[in-house]
Amino acid sequence: MDIQLSNICHSYGSVEVIKNISFNIESGKIVCIVGPSGCGKSTLLRFIGGLERPTSGEVLQLGAVPKDSLNPMTFVFQDFALLPWRTVGGNISLVLEDHGIRGAKANKIIDDVLSRTNLADFKNALPKQLSGGMKQRVAIARALAVNPAVMLLDEPLSALDSQTRELLIDDLVDLWSKKPFTAVYVTHNLEEAVRLGHSILVLSRRPGEIREVVTIDIPLKDRGYGNAELEKQRKYLWEIMRNEAKAADLELINV
């Protein structure tokens, strides 16, 4: 299933946030969205996930939703959004219960996603016992449990320190290489964007428009740390971003 964004425009009151965004998200590919703060990245992601409606324009699903997908559009949030009163296993079971999956069947799925995210030993731990990186892994496991057609990740690693982030990027690459998934990945961090994105959507400052689409052809698992080609792409992205970010900064002062 592909996702098509067609002519998306959005305003909050008199503030124009997103302007004329059209783009295709191909099945099995990771699209990264980068752009200056406040340019509407999170808003765009909420449109794709159906949590909000754009003022004009549409988000279209092309092709049938895979039958085994319980929740085609699945979010991974920056602040993890785990229920603190449920254990790791309970948090995953939460999203299965409403689909009538309980008991042994649920346990099978839970054990599977926990082992895929290296969390098998933490099934009965409460979120307060986990580090930030582990919490985000639980959130990723929870997202995997519903077999999403598209994963929507809103700065999933921003709340983590850089070492943990590095580890989780590897984990995501690993997960994708074993079983490709479609994802839209919003980030501030260009390093993350070049490591994970098959294509990178650069948005302008508010109102967010597509400034440029950068595609990177290197396979994900060959994008190791310190790859020269990636470094070049990252610099290139930063050149585009810097001017936007600068202008966005000045704009805020003028308000």
């Binding site: 319980l70 959004a81 939460l94 999203v95």
Partner: peptide, 12 residues
């Protein structure tokens, strides 16, 4: 954000 999460997973 927890409520949003619930909605995003299609909970009733």
């Amino acid at each position: 954000t927890l409520i949003r999460m619930g909605q995003s997973f299609g909970l009733s």
